[in-house]
């Protein structure tokens, strides 16, 4: 399987211009025979939206923007980041990731963990998603996560329990920390790399992380997208801070091999986890 990672910047609040760039890159990826092209978190809108959120929201069931992306996804799978508003829930906005395949929306993941502290204020403008669910796409089982979702390891666990062999993380992670003199990138990039390595190895799954670049309001997005294979080995690393469009072949058979050699998936006991969490929650209620 050939994967394209579009480590790009977006124009804040300009869905029209961002859509053009998406269509251009989807076409490019398809021309280069990629099976899947991945864009960063909120790639259609930009990240620091504040009161722009309602203005740039997309209704997946009737949006012209979505129709054009779906047409572009007939021959190549596409992951994009968008502000989603649902028909059945108007006025409620989600920071979402859409997996488009064969001209249809295969899955929509709504970001669950909305960072709302320090320089982050997502909880002021977005509603929180309520589920992590692995889904089928072609012959794969895929899981989608958005940025902070990935730093809570329980999210990836749900995808492992759901059988995902491909964990796709789209991100708009700002770079922070410049005191490490050895590092090529910001110190905060380490969070993602550490988790990427651990989750890929212990889930026996590919972890594909697509982070954005560029600046918004003085904040630099760190880039440094990567792919870890199911053995926890780094397969690809995009440069920090720079625009990048790269293609990599990933060998899906490695998922099978890894799960055969290290049967974490086979030996997983989601019912025990579920029971333990259920008990914990009931006990908390009693307290």
């Amino acid at each position: 399987m050939k994967v394209a990672i579009a480590q790009i910047s977006s124009i804040l609040g300009r869905v029209d211009k961002n859509l053009d760039r998406h269509l251009e890159l989807i076409e490019k990826a398809a021309r280069e025979k990629a099976d899947l092209v991945i864009f960063p978190e909120l790639s259609l809108t930009g990240y620091s939206l504040q009161d722009l959120v309602p203005e740039v929201a997309i209704r997946p069931d009737c949006s012209e923007v979505m129709s054009r992306l779906l047409v572009a996804s007939r021959n190549i799978d596409v992951v994009v980041g968008l502000v989603e508003e649902r028909k059945e829930n108007p006025g409620i906005f989600y920071n979402s990731a859409a997996y488009l395949s064969r001209g249809e929306i295969a899955h929509l993941h709504r970001k669950v963990f909305l960072p709302t502290s320090g320089l982050f204020e997502e909880g002021r403008f977005f509603a929180s998603g309520r589920e992590f669910r692995a889904f089928p796409a072609g012959s794969n089982r895929v899981g989608l996560l958005i940025c902070r979702d990935f730093l809570h390891y329980s999210s990836s666990y749900c995808l492992l329990a759901g059988g995902a062999g491909l964990i796709i993380v789209i991100s708009a992670a700002p770079g922070r920390g410049v005191l490490n003199e050895e590092s090529q990138g910001f110190e905060s990039s380490r969070n993602w790399e550490l988790m990427g390595q651990a989750i890929s190895y212990f889930s026996s799954a590919f972890v594909i992380y697509c982070n954005r670049v560029g600046l918004e309001n003085g904040v630099t997005f760190a880039g440094g997208s990567f792919i870890y294979n199911p053995d926890g080995q780094l397969l690809f690393k995009a440069p920090y801070l720079e625009d990048d469009f790269s293609l990599r072949e990933i060998d899906l058979d490695l998922i099978r091999k890894a799960r055969k050699n290290r049967p974490y998936k086979r030996d997983d006991r989601p019912e025990v986890i579920c029971y333990s969490l259920g008990r914990l929650l009931r006990k908390q209620d009693e307290d």
Partner: peptide, 20 residues
Amino acid sequence: MKINCQLVTRALTNFIKEES
């Protein structure tokens, strides 16, 4: 408190160029 000068230079030149 020592900074990574190479990284800082990269970030700040990007900042000047892009924000202007």
